[in-house]
């Protein structure tokens, strides 16, 4: 019989701990498939962050380092400076990357560190139970913005892809989503390009992936995917912000 689809070899057999309907799982698959298809899986070093994806190091079948909250880009910097020929990537949530780890992120980008960041933006602190994130939309309810985020007191959500693409140090920046098959296909292309940017030694690459958190958005999974389409994408427009010339 011909195999038309199988689980990527880039993931271990350990079952995901993610909530039903959470799109972290899709993103894991895309990252693993991309690395395998590019022949980089064995070569990869995953820097896991602190958030729902804290156990990524168990799921990706490669070497890994577990970083403290927000510091994955600094850990990846240290690792990559030593391991120049390995594919070093971080996998970070929006609280990790755009709040506590803003300095580490911006400066890794500004230095043009030749690493790849997989940035999962679900507009909420997932792991700690649904608190307001730096990316929570104005009006969006969170446990620490019970009436919805109010701009006058909580300020505005951060558009990371746009912000980082202003830096000369960045080489590849794209925002994608995983809420429907067409977007998933585009997301995988972007992830592959990001890794290729690194293997071509072209510098810093980041893919911002809009992802759902049905649990903390308090929605059934399908509604969450629709909410992502209707609310998140208008504020966080999809598209490429930067590509290296030769890519």
């Amino acid at each position: 019989m011909k195999t038309v689809f199988e689980k990527t070899k880039g993931l271990t057999d350990i079952p995901f701990h993610y909530c039903p309907g959470c799109t972290h799982g899709i993103i894991h698959r895309l990252v693993a498939e991309s690395l395998v298809e590019l022949g980089l899986m064995e070569d990869a070093v995953c820097v896991a962050s602190v958030g729902c994806s804290v156990f990524t190091y168990k799921y990706f079948d490669c070497d890994a380092m577990q970083a403290s909250h927000g510091r994955a880009p600094a850990v990846a910097t240290g690792a990559k400076r030593v391991l120049k020929d390995r594919t070093v990537f971080t996998y970070q949530g929006d609280g990790d990357l755009a709040a506590i780890g803003t300095a580490e992120t911006v400066h890794a980008a500004a230095r043009g560190e030749n690493i790849t960041i997989i940035y999962v933006n679900n507009a909420i602190y997932g792991m700690t139970g649904g608190q307001m994130a730096p990316t929570t939309l104005v009006g969006q309810k969170a446990t620490t913005s019970p009436e919805g985020r109010i701009a006058s007191t909580n300020g505005y959500p951060i558009r990371v892809a746009e912000m980082l693409s202003t830096l000369d140090g960045t080489a590849f920046i794209e925002r994608v989503a995983v809420n429907k098959p067409a977007n998933v296909i585009k997301a995988k292309k972007a992830i592959k390009k990001a890794f290729q940017t690194q293997t071509n030694k072209q510098g810093f690459s980041l893919v911002e992936i809009l992802s759902s958190c049905p649990t903390n958005w308090s929605m059934p999974p399908q509604d969450a995917l629709n909410w992502l389409e209707e609310k998140m994408i208008p504020y966080y427009p999809l598209g490429n912000f930067k590509t290296p010339e030769e890519n």
């Binding site: 600094a74 850990v75 910097t77 240290g78 690792a79 400076r81 580490e104």
Partner: peptide, 10 residues
Amino acid sequence: IGAINMVYGA
């Protein structure tokens, strides 16, 4: 903070 975490990676 950045420096010590780079130390961790290296």
